[in-house]
């Protein structure tokens, strides 16, 4: 028997990864197939009619958006579903009884969810290869937005999973907040194709900056400056991380 200071955190991270990996058909493969269907339909309908940023084919434009959308949605789904299932079935006590700090708790749930998001995102990118000629102009930018976007949604998932007392409330959070914000964030269109009013409204949606910044990593072009996107996304991440950590430190709904 050997004791290690970080073993608690590592074990929770391992357990959370193993949890989604054991049902990878549902947690990784299914969202990849969904994204592929979007790609098939939209590319078939629009590819010959629409170009973006001058000469970029619509399908090529769509791929980074789909990758990021899938990544974000799955990062959220992982932490939120894991927590609410554990709360409702009662097995959350196995995580609450050991000597894990709230920071370790946060880090393990968020990193595991980021990994699921990144797996799904990579999967979507992989299956897109036969459909589109795509190069990554600035991989550092793409990676930065993928990491920060998944961390934001994973944190939101922790908040939703802790806050919700039943699956219905979590579904509300997902369907009335996460889904509209992702779908209306420029996944399927360039902001410049919208009327001015909706362009202004889109600037209030942090998901737009995540996707626009990620897309910059592929084309070296985006609707707004990647630095602006980086600033907005960084502030969002810091605020959400602080809020989640404060909830966990207080024991909100977990250690009542």
């Amino acid at each position: 028997m050997r004791e290690s200071r970080l073993a608690g955190f590592r074990t929770l991270l391992y357990k959370e990864v193993l949890r989604f990996w054991k049902v990878a058909f549902q947690t990784v493969l299914a969202p990849v197939i969904n994204a592929m269907l979007f790609l098939l339909i939209f590319s078939h309908v629009l590819d010959r009619h629409v170009t973006v940023y001058g000469d970029i084919a619509y399908t090529a434009f769509l791929v980074p958006g789909l990758v990021m959308m899938s990544l974000l949605q799955n990062a959220f789904a992982n932490s939120s579903s894991s927590l609410i299932q554990s709360k409702i079935t009662g097995n959350i006590i196995f995580v609450l009884l050991p000597p894990l700090s709230y920071r370790e708790f946060y880090a393990a749930y968020v990193i595991a969810s980021m990994l699921r998001g990144l797996f799904v995102g990579a999967g979507v990118l992989l299956v897109s290869i036969p459909f589109v000629d795509l190069s990554i102009a600035a991989p550092g930018w793409a990676l930065a937005f993928a990491l920060m976007g998944s961390a934001i949604l994973a944190s939101l998932g922790v908040i939703a999973g802790i806050w919700a007392d039943k699956f219905d409330q979590l579904a509300g959070f997902q369907n009335f907040l996460i889904m509209p914000l992702t779908m209306l964030s420029g996944v399927f269109y360039s902001l410049h194709s919208l009327p001015q009013l909706w362009q202004d409204v889109s600037h209030a949606n942090p998901f737009f900056f995540m996707i626009d910044g990620f897309r910059y990593g592929f084309f070296g072009q985006s609707d707004v400056s990647p630095w602006l996107s980086l600033g907005v996304v960084s502030v969002c991440l810091m605020l959400l991380a602080a809020l989640t950590l404060a909830m966990l430190a207080r024991g909100y709904k977990l250690r009542a």
Binding site: M1, R2, E3, S4, R5, A7, G8, R10, T11, L12, Y14, K15, L18, R19, K22, V23, S86, T89, G90, N91, I93, F94, V95, P98, P99, L100
Partner: peptide
Amino acid sequence: VFDPFFTVRELLRIQSGYFGIRH
């Protein structure tokens, strides 16, 4: 209460790990 994703041994290993105990 139980975690439906794991086997008995996996659960006990995981629970040991939470307490910082490996092997």
